[in-house]
Design a protein around this nucleic acid. Sequence first.
DNA 1: CTCGGATTGTTGAGCTTTCAACCGCACCGT
DNA 2: ACGGTGCGGTTGAAAGCTCAACAATCCGAG
Lengths: 159, 159
Amino acid sequence: MDEVRWLSEREQEIWRAFITVTEGLTEHFDRQLQRDSAMPYTYYEILVALSEAPGRTLRMSELAGARGSSRSRLSHAVARLEDVGWVRRRTCPTDKRGSFAVLTDAGFAALEAAAPGHVTAVREKLFDALTPEQVTALGEISKAILAGLNCQELSDPCD
Amino acid sequence: MDEVRWLSEREQEIWRAFITVTEGLTEHFDRQLQRDSAMPYTYYEILVALSEAPGRTLRMSELAGARGSSRSRLSHAVARLEDVGWVRRRTCPTDKRGSFAVLTDAGFAALEAAAPGHVTAVREKLFDALTPEQVTALGEISKAILAGLNCQELSDPCD
DNA sequence: CTCGGATTGTTGAGCTTTCAACCGCACCGT
DNA sequence: ACGGTGCGGTTGAAAGCTCAACAATCCGAG
């Protein structure tokens, strides 16, 4: 089974449209947050995750795992967020290898300030562009793709 | 109309799933290309665009505009692609400001070598995960979002 | 013809991400 | 207790992207 199943004309068109959308949306949201709130989208995600956690605190590994971020990336990011005073690190008492990341009041305030603009952008550019049926379909499509993505990063097909 | 239209529980769930998918897919494809063909996805896109152009040649601005890339990004990228010998620059005879980017034979060969793996990844992770109806829906959804994205980067609503 | 503004493309600095190497600590078997 | 294995997290270098500034050229108005 060495044969490549190339994309048909129609599939190519859909693929191009899809990839253009993902790039366009992420760029749009990233720019909006950077411009209005001086943070990249990935940092916004970190602040959100922390704000929803009990005690606004998460282990580094949980924070990394919650979203698909690598440990290294998160470590750098949290270092930067510490510099601007939005996050603080605390050592874990029960496991001295571990680290907690804690959202500071300043960080929470920054998130509160950033949220309206971001949510508005998401609504305008994503939900307002779609019919209710399309929104539903998008949800199901996303879950279907996610299932296929997570099933293995190992090498072999999951079916 | 200063009120923020927050996302409902359901909308949040869909949004999260969608953003996770886009991040997951782009990371997956980027890794695959980097691992198997030593190029990031953005470079792959540049090679594809050039390979489809007449004479495998495009003006820098056309190349940038074809995909949503900034001039700066493209300039850096082409510089790098020139270093590895996949692209060559030529000055434009009719407009001395302009530059052509030309795909070399080595670049075309690299693209031919990279394509099967990439297309296979796209098929496995995207198309195989969806039903035919979902594929159709994804195409329409993408076009709808694109229309909303392009209508203005200026500032004001397009409706 | 000439000047001013717009266009094309490049450059360098700063920031984020990735990759590989690494340290310290926990856990487990002996 | 001891030693190995592996986890949790950090670090530094290299690579890519963004942003702002810039150089060179083109174009149009006077």
